[in-house]
């Protein structure tokens, strides 16, 4: 659609998405728009429903209500692998490397989504590893990497499949300050490749500087959707994070 390239285009659009587990409403009537070329931060305290929302977008869970449109196609309830092939890819909060495959092979599996040839996939995978700074660990087994590198491996695996949208689920949790700095820089570089990003992060201080816009979830509901500066000063956000417990503060400081 070349005629629309300069217009702001909603790449991913959620309308009224709701997910209930028994009596609990994990995601409650969420509307969300992700524009092409954007970095959208999705934040909220523990148990706010961020990861559930991710699982719904990526097709792991079916929403009870609502509609999800990706790149102009209704993908509500579509199978995960089909959504992935349409160009939306994700990483996992709890890392899932293929433990007994080595690092290149891990990434090759991602590259194979667009390359049937093993040889091409290997080249593609090496490129992705180079980009992610993991090339020197290419022959390590997935299980042998450090947590920080396992997270990078997941990103490399996803990038190798040339996604339009990448959903990053807490890629910075559990990293030390210098690793977080690297990760922030890394996310900017991914974005510079032309990948639209939806980033879940629990720690506000990390996400604010990198996001163009943030959406805040609390108890499954979207309470704020604005630019980062406004979000931090929003009273509802402050009470969600710091109001009842100081769990958020504890995490944020480490």
């Amino acid at each position: 659609m070349p005629q629309r390239r300069w217009a702001i285009m909603a790449l991913l659009e959620l309308t009224g998405v709701t997910k209930r587990f028994g009596g609990l409403t994990a995601v409650d009537n969420v509307n969300l728009v992700l524009n092409e070329g954007e970095i959208l931060g999705l934040i909220g305290p523990n148990g706010a429903g961020k990861t559930t929302l991710f699982a719904i977008i990526a097709g792991y869970l079916k929403p009870n209500e609502g509609k999800i449109v990706f790149n102009g196609v209704d993908i509500t309830g579509k199978e995960t692998h089909k959504i992935a092939r349409m160009g939306m890819n994700r990483t996992f909060q709890v890392v899932k490397p293929f433990s007994d495959m080595n690092v290149v092979e891990n990434v090759m599996v991602g590259a194979m989504m667009r390359n049937a040839s093993v040889k091409r996939a290997r080249e593609k995978a090496m490129d992705a590893l180079e980009f992610c700074g993991l090339a020197h660990r290419a022959d390590y087994l997935g299980r042998e990497l450090t947590v920080a590198n396992k997270k990078r491996l997941e990103v490399a695996r996803a990038l190798a499949s040339d996604p339009k949208v990448l959903l990053l689920d807490e890629v910075m949790a559990g990293l030390n300050p210098s690793e977080v700095r690297d990760a922030v820089e890394f996310i900017h570089r991914i974005h510079a490749r032309g990948v639209t990003l939806l980033v879940i992060e629990h720690v506000m201080e990390v996400i604010m500087p990198i996001s163009h816009r943030v959406a805040v979830l609390n108890y499954g509901k979207k309470i704020v959707d604005s630019d980062p500066k406004q979000a931090v000063s929003d009273p509802e956000v402050i009470s969600a994070y710091f109001g009842s417990t100081d769990e958020g503060r504890g995490d944020a400081s480490c």
């Binding site: 792991y60 992935a84 092939r85 433990s99 599996v109 989504m113 093993v118 996803a158 499949s161």
Partner: peptide, 26 residues
């Protein structure tokens, strides 16, 4: 051992959830 299908099989064995995310029809 040297084809996409073989890699996909191994990926499924290792972690079906991650395999799905990489576009594999399990």
């Amino acid at each position: 051992k040297n084809s996409r299908s073989g890699y996909y099989f191994r990926a499924i064995k290792e972690d079906p959830q991650a395999a799905k995310a990489l576009g594999i029809n399990i």
